[in-house]
Design a protein around this nucleic acid. Sequence first.
DNA 1: GCTTGCTATGCAACTCGTTGCATAGCATGA
DNA 2: TCATGCTATGCAACGAGTTGCATAGCAAGC
Lengths: 181, 181
Amino acid sequence: MALEHAILVSLLERPGSGYELAGRFERSIGRFWTATHQQIYRVLRRMESDGWVVAEEVGQDGRPDKRSFSVTGLGRSTLAEWLRAPVQPEAVRHELAVKIRGAAFTDAAGRAELLAEVTRYRAEHEALLATYLNGEKRDFPDPGALDVGQRLQHVVLRGGIAYERMLLDWLDDVLHTLRAL
Amino acid sequence: MALEHAILVSLLERPGSGYELAGRFERSIGRFWTATHQQIYRVLRRMESDGWVVAEEVGQDGRPDKRSFSVTGLGRSTLAEWLRAPVQPEAVRHELAVKIRGAAFTDAAGRAELLAEVTRYRAEHEALLATYLNGEKRDFPDPGALDVGQRLQHVVLRGGIAYERMLLDWLDDVLHTLRAL
DNA sequence: GCTTGCTATGCAACTCGTTGCATAGCATGA
DNA sequence: TCATGCTATGCAACGAGTTGCATAGCAAGC
């Protein structure tokens, strides 16, 4: 498991509350590690009791208090240790690929519906690519003048961009194949 | 959840036992949907009691009997229904991306170790790409003469190939970035 | 002769992830 | 004024996935 570590990285980049973290996991970090607020709160509580993070109560007027977390020395060294460990083989779960192979066992109407769904899915990822490219322009306008953290964030974002471009090309291939069936 | 559906597709392509399925999930299907034998046996039992698959006892000499499963009409229509449903947004879990962003919070020695790990990871995926390309040459030597099922299997394999090529290019970018830090 | 490995299936315990729901006050717009 | 939506946190229940272990006989190599 590594939600803990994704949270450590995010909190090192900037301390924040569980709610704020959930927001980041919807936006930036969620590009490469998804999590719901439930998971985040539960894991944060465990991390706090293990001494990886500490909370600071922040009173706010008009809304509930929030607990802003930051990473302790122990948290930092735990992360460093994890960074040294080999990358675990990923659990691949590509539903669309299953559906495409499954299309061999349905009729023409079913394949037509799949084609429509692939088209919708493609539009979704086209929009996502646009978001990434926008974010790149906004956050890394001058790639020559970045600090270490930014350069690493940029190379991860370039990975997302490369992935989306590859995906769009492949989806065109899929659409072509489905139409030619 | 869709392990059920991945199993349905695999059993429609060719009936087999839980053990055989586990093998396929290690090799071909596992490219886009991983599962252990435990998951497979448990889900198969549920699918059997729901009437999606039926088992045939096959006696074998010298080894335990096996139960070969095949898909029923109900299983087939369940799959058709699932094929019509929209693709669920995927749970992205890219550990390496977390580690790369985490590298901003470690020292030079830690970054050197990460660089070594990325190099190892790259070699692994280079080998995987070679396996895919070999499989393509073996299974689809004449792309003009394929039936519907094969054409769909081929386009999914092309997706795997495109993914691995993209990944290798990106890993080169990562290695370059880490070295230039 | 012994170990290792393959076919073949399964139990038990545990952790992780998901879903639905609850609270609570403020801001915003219809 | 009423509904919707945002900030902020949490419980409870369930389903999915992982890990360790167990059985059992045969084949192959050291």
